[in-house]
Amino acid sequence: MSTEELPPRESMEFDVVIVGAGPSGLGAAIRLKQLNPELSVVVVEKGSEVGAHILSGAVMDPVALDKLIPDWREDADCPLKTEVKDDRFYWFTETKAIKLPNFIMPPLMNNHHCYIGSLGRLCRWLAGKAEALGVEIYPGFAATEVLYDDKGAVRGIATGDMGVAKDGSHKASFTRGMELCGKYTLFAEGARGSLTKQLVAKFSLDANSQPPKFGIGLKEVWQIDPSKHQKGLVQ
């Protein structure tokens, strides 16, 4: 089946379309509804559920959350429960760990105002807050195409077609993706967003920017003796 033979997509209109149900996308959706409850806001998320594509463990600065949901500490369902009580930094050799004094560390290494928790669980909690305000959230729908109007401005996104075999042929279950159009489209895809990369290139959004900086993070999950666990310790 050629592209010309594909049936037209169904289209839905919103005030704001948000791509990505991470902290930024959900935070923006919540703030928009706080400012104007009448706005129609939709969030699409490629993960099978909200939080599925989020790095799970993290040390989080609550400064933005304090502004967005000031009473989050009183919410029994909020997953951020453990405040950082102690920072320890070590220099490792082959045989020993040498503790470094905290005063020589830059201010950004001070975590004492932060909380330890699962960012995935935090996103699921934020999704509940957003839905309670009337935000529509569609997990399991990847935004695969940017839609433009006749003037070249972004008018929304299209989700991917369903029921496509590995060889590109269409299964009996084939259904076309949806067009989600908005007065504003917010791309909150994260550091490796494919549509964001297309927009950066198309509109030269990085023309007056410094080259991007990249880092590699390694994550290990350790099981330790519960008797050795110290709540609130970042080491």
Rank of each mutant, 00 (worst) to 15 (best):
29 A>V: 09
151 K>N: 11
46 K>H: 11
210 Q>K: 14
121 R>I: 00
160 G>H: 08
212 P>M: 08
227 S>P: 03
175 T>A: 15
68 L>R: 05
52 A>D: 11
160 G>T: 05
232 G>S: 04
140 G>S: 09
188 A>Y: 06
11 S>Q: 15
55 L>T: 13
174 F>L: 10
120 G>F: 01
220 E>N: 09
145 E>C: 01
231 K>L: 13
132 A>G: 14
1 M>G: 15
51 G>R: 12
109 M>T: 05
176 R>Y: 01
38 E>D: 14
113 H>G: 06
9 R>E: 07
3 T>D: 15
66 D>R: 06
116 I>M: 12
223 Q>M: 09
88 R>P: 00
91 W>G: 10
71 D>W: 02
207 A>C: 07
201 A>G: 01
5 E>Q: 11
2 S>D: 13
113 H>Q: 10
12 M>G: 03
67 K>H: 05
126 L>R: 00
122 L>D: 01
121 R>D: 14
27 G>P: 00
148 Y>E: 13
22 G>M: 02
207 A>T: 04
66 D>T: 06
87 D>L: 14
14 F>T: 06
35 L>C: 06
194 S>C: 08
80 L>M: 09
171 K>I: 00
56 S>C: 00
102 N>T: 10
100 L>V: 05
80 L>S: 02
146 V>Q: 05
84 V>D: 11
